[in-house]
Amino acid sequence: MSDDLTRDPFARLRQATRARIGLGRSGAGLPTPALASFRLDAARARDAVHAPLDVAALQAELSEFETLALRSAAADRSIYLRRPDLGRKLAEEDRAGLAKGDYDLAFVICDGLSSAAVAAHAGATLRAAHEALPDLSIAPVAIVIQGRVAVGDEVGQGLGARMVAVLIGERPGLTVADSLGIYLTYNPRSGCPDSDRNCLSNIHLSGGQTPAQAASKLAWLVREARRLGLTGTKLKEEAPTLAASETTAIPKE
């Protein structure tokens, strides 16, 4: 047994997880490096929740797409955090301003609980998903401030999309503050239950799914949803895992 493992029996476990284990102690508290690391990660998590999404910068990044800047019924961040119900609905004037079309799929980007996740990964994920679904008619990309997952139902319904994919910042933790999630819903409509959605989570570059891997799985789910006419608990995600180095392009059906 190495000297390191003899001195620190948790060393081997730390190689297999990012969890905080065997931190030790200094007197009645944590050692200074462990405490400083905890405080830094906690600050990153708070910033991810409270920092506003730079919509103009995101629109510039997505300049090849037509984008719509929308707001939920939550007027500001404080209300959004205290009133989840308002984050699930569009502001009245934005709902009324949606132009109904005829689309297979609508993408909705919401800041959710991590604007950092959206800023870091939404652009790459959206671009990869578009490339993986070349034969679908796709609506303008909606960017919703103070939005939660269900706000995508109103957007999809208002745009006349048969499916909606919501890219949203996930609740940050003390290991990852920029994790993105995708929620796919067939036949989006107001009052749609969460059991009618499929979720892809942990999209980030710190040991999670890469944007390319998530886009490949989303494309598989979209095609199965079209074939079966549903999403949710009756649609099991059984897509093959895509290696990070592989392309996300999928042949047309």
Rank of each mutant, 00 (worst) to 15 (best):
A249E: 13
G87S: 05
A74L: 12
A57H: 02
D76R: 06
L228S: 04
E224N: 12
G207Y: 04
L13C: 06
M1V: 01
G22Y: 07
M1F: 01
G22R: 08
R162V: 00
L53M: 09
P134R: 07
A116R: 09
E93I: 11
R171P: 10
A75Y: 08
A74D: 13
E238Q: 11
G232H: 07
A42E: 14
G229R: 11
R83L: 06
L35I: 00
E238L: 10
L58D: 09
L228T: 07
H121G: 03
V155Q: 11
D111C: 07
P134M: 10
A212D: 07
V49P: 01
L30F: 10
R7T: 07
A116Q: 09
P31S: 03
S2A: 01
E253C: 00
E66P: 03
E253R: 12
R171I: 08
D4F: 02
D153H: 11
A124K: 10
G208Y: 03
R25K: 13
C192N: 15
E154T: 11
A16V: 02
D178E: 13
L105D: 04
G169K: 01
G112L: 09
A129D: 04
L242T: 05
I203H: 08
A122Y: 02
F107S: 03
V49Y: 00
D135C: 06
P9Q: 08
V164S: 12
V49S: 00
V155Y: 13
A249M: 07
D135A: 15
L200S: 12
S2E: 01
V164I: 09
R82N: 14
A122F: 03
A165I: 04
D8G: 03
V144W: 10
A99T: 15
G232A: 04
T67E: 08
T185I: 10
G24I: 04
L218P: 03
L23P: 01
A73I: 09
D196V: 02
A212K: 09
A116N: 05
K252G: 13
A96I: 04
K252C: 13
D54R: 07
T247V: 00
K252Y: 00
H121V: 04
K236T: 12
A214S: 11
L58R: 03
V144L: 13
N202A: 15
A56K: 08
A75C: 12
Q59R: 15
S114P: 04
R7A: 14
E170P: 10
I168E: 02
L136E: 06
A51C: 10
E92Q: 14
A212E: 06
E224T: 00
L81S: 06
F65D: 12
P188G: 11
L174C: 06
A43H: 14
H130D: 02
D8C: 06
G101K: 11
S206N: 14
G29P: 00
E66V: 12
T6W: 04
T175F: 02
A116F: 03
A139Y: 10
I109A: 09
L200A: 12
Q146Y: 13
Q213H: 03
